Amino acid sequence: MDLDAYVVAHAHEWARLEELVRVRRPSGPESDELVDRYQQVATQLSVIRTSAPDAEVVAYLSSLLHKARISMLAARVLSWRAVGLFFTHQFPAALYRLRWWWLGCMAGNILVTAVLMWWLVDHPEVEQTLLSPEEVDRLVNSDFESYYSENPAQDFAARVWINNAWVSALVLVSGITGVLAIYFLFTNVLNLAVVGSIMTRHDRADLFWGLILPHGLLELTAVFVAGGVGLRLFWSWVEPGGVSRTNALAQAGRITITCALGLAAVLFVSGIIEAFVTPSPLPTWARIGIGVLAEVVFFLYVFILGRQAVRQGHTGDISADLLEDRVATQA
């Protein structure tokens, strides 16, 4: 192939792509043209790499495609349609495909919590090594209940959301190590079991569950999802499943990011419930009912919307056209 002639023949197309990349707020037709030009230039780059790999031309086109890809991604992220597609297809598909991981994580953590709480209730001497009698008295009679109402609801909601999102992010990211994710999950359920056992032994189990369940069902589910997805990230490089470990880990990592963004929204909902419903004057059955309703909606979201999205071919990964600069062609 005559590279000089090829460059001259297609230089105007590359120049047009440069113009489109510089447009800050492209119109609908310009966005469509940007995608078309991106695919066109990616094809041309593939041809050059195959037939006449000139380093300077390859570097120029690779840089141009990188800028175009960022422009396309920015346009998608900023559009409400992209946000809608994320929550109706991408996120639920990821949750559904990884359901056995986080359902297993949930079941395991519930079992561990129940065993720990039962054991701690039967061994009151452990309580004395953790808290002084004065601290236990404050926890049982005032601190546990006042925690949910001592700050303005909107401030408390924001603080809870940030804290829970941080915990979930830690579990997700540490999942690649396997051990750290399990450690963070165990620390979380241990704290729950300790407080629950103390409240139970002092005949305040009704107060404990009445304040935990409204928001805790959805909140803990989100943490367990993070744990399951994080452990799947770890398993992707232990058992890549017929592809290279690099590719398996890269795909699992992208799906993990999808779950992290989606879980931030789930935890926002649980934070609102914790700030406005948990400490509200509503009867206990009504507050717990709201928590159960939120949990049921989440499971319907996963197993109805998620299953439909998977059947339509969604995986939870980002769009294929944003993954590579190369387009398979025949020279």
Rank of each mutant, 00 (worst) to 15 (best):
H215Q: 12
H215R: 06
G216N: 09
G216Q: 07
G216R: 04
L217V: 03
L217S: 01
L217H: 01
L218I: 12
L218Q: 10
L218Y: 04
L220M: 12
T221Y: 02
A222K: 10
V223Y: 10
V223W: 12
V223T: 08
V223K: 02
F224C: 15
F224I: 09
V225Q: 04
V225Y: 04
V225P: 03
V225W: 03
A226L: 11
G227F: 03
G227H: 02
G227V: 03
G227D: 04
G227C: 03
G228M: 11
G228S: 11
G228I: 10
G228N: 11
G228K: 11
V229R: 13
V229E: 15
G230E: 15
G230H: 15
L231K: 08
L231I: 14
L231N: 08
R232F: 07
R232N: 10
R232W: 12
L233N: 00
L233T: 00
L233E: 00
L233V: 00
L233Q: 00
F234C: 13
F234V: 07
F234Q: 11
F234R: 09
F234Y: 15
W235Q: 06
W235G: 00
S236R: 07
S236F: 06
W237L: 14
W237F: 15
V238I: 13
V238C: 05
E239P: 01
E239T: 13
E239H: 13
P240F: 12
P240I: 09
G242K: 11
V243K: 10
S244F: 00
S244Q: 00
R245P: 07
T246H: 08
T246A: 12
N247P: 00
N247M: 11
A248W: 02
A248G: 01
L249V: 14
L249Y: 12
A250M: 06
A250K: 09
A252I: 05
A252P: 02
G253C: 01
G253R: 00
G253M: 02
G253V: 02
I255Q: 14
T256W: 08
I257Q: 05
I257P: 03
I257G: 10
I257K: 05
T258A: 05
C259N: 07
C259G: 03
C259H: 04
C259Y: 05
A260H: 01
A260F: 08
A260V: 02
L261A: 14
L261N: 10
L261W: 12
L261D: 08
L261K: 11
L263Q: 01
L263Y: 01
A265N: 14
A265Q: 14
A265C: 15
A265E: 15
V266L: 13
V266Q: 09
L267D: 05
L267V: 04
L267Y: 06
F268C: 11
V269H: 06
S270H: 06
S270W: 06
S270K: 07
G271W: 03
G271A: 13
G271F: 02
I272Y: 10
I273K: 08
E274W: 08
E274P: 09
A275V: 10
A275T: 09
V277Y: 10
V277F: 09
T278P: 10
T278S: 14
T278N: 13
T278G: 12
